[in-house]
Design a protein around this nucleic acid. Structure first.
Lengths: 245, 245
DNA sequence: CGCGTGCTTCGGCCCCGGCCGAAACGGCCG
DNA sequence: CGGCCGTTTCGGCCGGGGCCGAAGCACGCG
């Protein structure tokens, strides 16, 4: 039985601005050092240290000591899902009441909105466009609570070089159960998460269609990627994805 | 773009013990009055009123005025999913460090562990047994991130009188996308949520196999239910479900 | 071996936010 | 109309917890 106090404690850990900032940065699935996280959260190292100790103690983070650095990462996909859930609610909640002090979207934010990693899969305009394209061609079916890869989708993705067998291995079940919608907080529309989303991202990185940026969750589309993603998903064409959908 | 502050604010709303208690009670999907929620959270009505105002303002709750009562309920399935996510992390996090002051499981807790509602579907030992049985007979496939109803499962459930067409209507997509695992925080094993889970609960209530208890999330198994659920899912038999699975 | 660096611990400050008592508001009933 | 009850608003109290400066460890390197 989960006590109310443990329940509240877990949420409260996410509810502090400094800790929330750290967790948001860790959402891309990478492991970061305490100092990097301190900078990301805008606090001094000693404050960050306290926060990280709490998060680790509660099982939200795992730490790996390596030399004199300590690398922190999200402890499990369950933690990432929880954070996604909070983000989805936060996105749908207050439609920006009045915060003109918040910086207007800068160039770096633009890159993030275009394409970024979200724990272990892609997010941003590119990811939403891919999801739209896959749904439009009948390759996947997406609901609010789950999704499925159709036989024709299986064939299509195999043709693209996506390693579906490896994707299945990371999950128990046999087929069609590794597809899950994840509400994109910049686009406010779903993209594909789960093992299938991870496999898609892995494929894009393997084939050098996308490259991670240093020190950011943004990913850049290479020229080869622009060609391949354009052909496969209509990415980059004026209006392949339905704005009115 | 979801700002870090909105993200943290949302989590912080869940992170207060009094609000967490209210939200946990509302997880069964029912609408409750402010006084009921105050009692559930163990605070005075005026304190509860403040909390409820915050939750409504942030879009976590919707309120419906009815006479001199105000009924509060979770604003959307997204909110329920977020709370589920937090519960799952809280359950996996601290394996009861040392809290002997917490009451030992009483008879009421026993009923809750046996069978209860979880937003719009079943949870507890019964729900886990149903999920196990459905997986064992190949009716559904459950992964960590999603699930699917197989054709044979579709037939089996239709034979039980589950209204799959109505279940589909509540979700956009055409088929097989309304099945989702939900980690049971008393059993620590997955049960079936999503539209399919809701349809199963609706069927059990319709056929009077289960009855809601007044003022609690617990549900009671009727004699007819014991028979029907035993036949359909092996519920009640000594070891029909695999403990070693 | 001693310095620099990454990280943690300790102590004290201070503010945010939850809590309740008292009182006002509004619908309902007798 | 008067009393009642569910709910809200206001004001003041108070405690938990975040924050930082300073100091203490641990690790690696020259």
């Amino acid at each position: 039985m989960v006590t109310i106090s443990a329940f509240a404690r877990t949420a409260a850990l996410v509810g502090d601005p400094a800790r929330a900032g750290m967790l948001a940065v860790l959402m891309d699935g990478r492991a970061l050092t305490a100092s990097e996280l301190a900078r990301a959260a805008g606090v001094t190292p000693q404050t960050a240290s306290g926060h990280l100790a709490q998060l680790a103690e509660a099982g939200l983070l795992t730490v790996a000591r390596q030399g004199r650095h300590r690398y922190h990462r999200l402890a499990s996909p369950a933690v990432a899902r929880m954070l996604e859930g909070v983000m989805a609610v936060a996105a749908g909640a207050t439609p920006a009441p009045a915060r003109p002090s918040a910086r207007p979207p800068g160039p770096r934010d633009a890159a993030l909105r275009e394409a970024r990693t979200c724990y272990d899969h892609l997010a941003g305009r590119l990811a939403v466009a891919m999801a739209d394209s896959l749904v439009a061609r009948g390759a996947v079916e997406l609901g609010e609570d789950g999704g499925a890869l159709t036989p024709s989708g299986e064939e299509f993705l195999r043709g693209l070089g996506v390693d579906l067998a490896a994707a299945s291995e990371t999950n128990r079940p046999r087929r069609r159960v590794f597809c899950r919608p994840c509400l994109d907080w910049s686009e406010r529309r779903p993209h594909i998460a789960g093992a299938l989303g991870a496999a898609l991202l892995a494929t894009c990185l393997d084939r050098d269609w996308l490259r991670r940026s240093e020190g950011s969750r943004a990913v850049a589309v290479t020229p080869a990627g622009r060609l391949a993603l354009g052909r496969a998903f209509g990415y980059g064409r004026p209006c392949a994805c339905g704005d009115a959908a």
